[in-house]
Simulated assay, not measured.
Amino acid sequence: MGDAVKARSPLRIGLVGAGQISGAYLRTLAALPDLPVTAIADLDESRASAVAATVPGARATTPKELYAAEDVDLVLNLTVPAAHADVAHAAIAAGKHVYGEKPLAATTTEARAVLAAADGAGVRVGCAPDTVLGTGVQSARAVLDAGQLGTPVAATAFMVSPGHELWHPAPEFYYRPGGGPLFDMGPYYLTALVTLLGPVRTVVGMASTSRPVRTVASGPRAGTAFPVEVATHVTGVLEHESGALTTLVMSFDVWAGVLPRIEVYGTDGSLSVPDPNGFDGPVRLFSAGTGHWEDVPVQGGYPGAGRGYGIADLARSLATGTPHRASGQLAYHVLEIMESLLTASDTGRSITVRSAGERPTAVPAPARPEAE
Score class of each variant (00 low, 15 high):
T131I: 08
A155W: 06
T151A: 12
V123Y: 13
L133S: 11
L115S: 03
D130Q: 03
R141I: 02
V114Y: 03
V160A: 15
A140D: 12
S161G: 13
G136L: 02
G179F: 08
L133I: 07
G134E: 06
R124N: 11
P177E: 07
P171E: 06
A154S: 15
A146D: 07
V125Q: 02
M159C: 11
T135Q: 04
A142W: 06
P177D: 09
E165C: 00
H168C: 00
V160C: 15
Q148W: 08
A142T: 01
A170K: 13
A142C: 07
E165T: 00
S161L: 10
A128N: 15
V137M: 07
G120N: 00
A118T: 02
D119N: 06
A155F: 11
P181F: 01
V114D: 01
A170F: 09
G150F: 10
V160G: 09
S161R: 15
C127L: 11
G126P: 01
A116H: 15
P181N: 05
T135W: 05
L166C: 12
L133A: 04
R112M: 07
G178A: 05
D145K: 13
C127M: 10
P152F: 01
G120R: 04
A111K: 01
S161P: 08
D145A: 14
G178N: 06
W167D: 13
L115F: 02
G163Y: 04
P152K: 03
D130G: 00
T156D: 13
R112Y: 05
G147Q: 15
G150H: 12
F173P: 03
G178L: 08
T135S: 03
A155L: 10
R176E: 14
V114N: 01
A121P: 02
C127Q: 09
V137F: 08
G136F: 04
A111G: 09
G178R: 03
G122D: 10
G150W: 05
Q148E: 15
V143L: 07
D119F: 00
T151L: 13
S139T: 09
V123W: 08
P162G: 12
G163Q: 04
P129L: 03
G178V: 04
T151Y: 10
C127R: 06
P129K: 01
V160K: 13
H168M: 07
A121D: 01
G126T: 00
A146Y: 08
V123N: 06
T151Q: 14
V143M: 10
D130W: 00
A170G: 09
E165W: 01
G136W: 08
A155G: 12
R112P: 03
A116C: 10
T135D: 02
R112S: 08
A157I: 10
S161Q: 15
G179L: 06
R124W: 12
A146V: 01
V123M: 15
G122C: 04
V123T: 14
G178W: 03
A155E: 06
A117W: 02
G134I: 06
Q148M: 14
A140V: 01
L115V: 05
Q148D: 13
Q138N: 14
A170R: 12
F173V: 12
D130C: 02
E172F: 06
G126H: 00
W167L: 14
G180L: 01
D145I: 09
T151N: 06
T131K: 04
G126N: 01
P169T: 11
P171S: 03
A121I: 00
V143H: 11
D119P: 03
A113Q: 09
A117L: 02
A157T: 06
R112L: 11
A116F: 09
